[in-house]
Design a protein around this nucleic acid. Structure first.
Lengths: 233, 233
DNA sequence: TGCTGCACAATTGTCGACAGTCTTCAGTCT
DNA sequence: AGACTGAAGACTGTCGACAATTGTGCAGCA
């Protein structure tokens, strides 16, 4: 009797739509770091009331993408090199835990999937298709997150997922040569091996190293970019 | 029941007050796990409108204290033995990072403070003053969090601070004898030593061990309690 | 008796409005 | 001219109301 047919207005909560829209606007530069996000303006722009906007902003605040000052409103966070370092050091330990737990839970099918994702990353790198590359990279990590079967861990990772993606998009230019992209993909192989061996400790160690390394690469890129910006201003 | 006396133009944002009030109600058993949190009822009880309630619930959802089902509302999370284990494994790695960073940043004054807190914990244990004991325990950990000077890490820890406290209160009966309490306090000494030696790696290792151990203790207590509850129902 | 369907009640999601507060800017005084 | 003051404007925090949706109970029917 389940009629999975209708969704007349929208099945999704409006606030989620709004949050996604704002993130997209930040990613493509429509909103820049430090910009003030005026509820009324966004509401008008999207043709809805302020209530869902407020809730969306609250959620983004929880993810550290915007900061709200009482009585003043919400602003786009300044996401500099320091923030990248923080995000990646945090990810290294949290995903380390995820890998440790996943090691005893991944199935053969999961390992095959992970291998496939990595191969597709290499393929995307050869085509210089950074879009697909980033997408696969994220999917790879997300599968491990899921296999940790740790609800609270997933919540934390969910909270930084948007920001992770945001940084990947912003800094996709950090990986310009095939060489670097392939190198990034190669870093996944020790992870798969450790997981395949069901070696929890080693899985945690290698993924920590992998993420730390990736973070340093991105941080270096942003540091250089920030210096250039300062030089020109 | 709760004296809902309040002044209309409170300094703090009303939603924060509401969130605290709800947490308090959960802690003292007014709301039990699985209970439905009806916005209108809470609004009426507190004499305010639903808007701040909604935002507070959204925040608590972000902290995993309540879960919201679309079109159905918010419910108090079931916080069982499994959740304790999750919370503590997560804390072990996240606080591990905090300690690692703090090791290179703590001052002599900080070390003295940490030592003092630990002594006060022992003193509270001798008085069987679990209230003060828990408070000092939390303060000890929070100082290390702060010294990590890692904004995003702090945000994560902030997100689980409420739940941590909640568990401490709920499970304070897990530590019934002086012996256990003192043992808990003793566990802080290796942490202080490692921090004092500015040994980042060791600091991370010992605090991970400490938290893991504490988690197992609480989990064991809750497991037994849950079994008892099942037996009586 | 047991099942089906309808109407009603309860509750969420959303909206528009209003008061209070902070910012800005023009006008005035020194 | 520069500093100060006050008023206008802009925006957030909060409120009450309404429509849509889900759950519930009751009546009708086999």
């Amino acid at each position: 009797m389940d009629r999975v047919s209708f969704r007349p207005p929208e099945n999704k909560a409006l606030r989620v739509e709004v949050a996604n829209e704002i993130v997209r606007a930040i990613a493509n530069g429509h909103f820049k770091p430090g910009d003030r996000l005026v509820e009324q303006h966004i509401a008008k722009e999207m043709g809805i009331s302020r209530a869902p906007i407020r809730e969306a902003l609250r959620e983004l605040e929880g993810q550290g993408i915007v900061v709200t000052v009482p009585r003043k409103g919400a602003f786009v966070s300044h996401l500099g090199q320091e923030d990248v370092e923080e995000l990646f050091t945090l990810r290294s330990v949290v995903e380390g835990l995820a890998a440790r737990l996943a090691a005893t839970r991944v199935s053969g099918r999961d390992l095959a999937q992970l291998t496939r994702y990595t191969e597709e990353m290499v393929a995307a790198a050869r085509r210089k298709d950074t879009e697909a590359f980033v997408a696969r990279d994220l999917t790879f990590h997300e599968l491990i997150w899921t296999r940790s079967e740790h609800k609270r861990l997933l919540k934390v990772l969910d909270g930084i997922r948007t920001l992770t993606r945001l940084f990947m998009v912003i800094s996709k230019h950090a990986l310009t040569t095939d060489e670097q992209l392939v190198q990034e993909a190669e870093g996944h192989k020790p992870i798969i091996e450790a997981l395949g061996a069901r070696d929890a400790e080693r899985a945690e160690a290698v993924i920590r190293a992998h993420i730390t390394q990736a973070g340093e690469r991105v941080a270096k890129y942003l540091r250089e970019r920030e210096q250039k910006e300062e030089a020109t201003s």
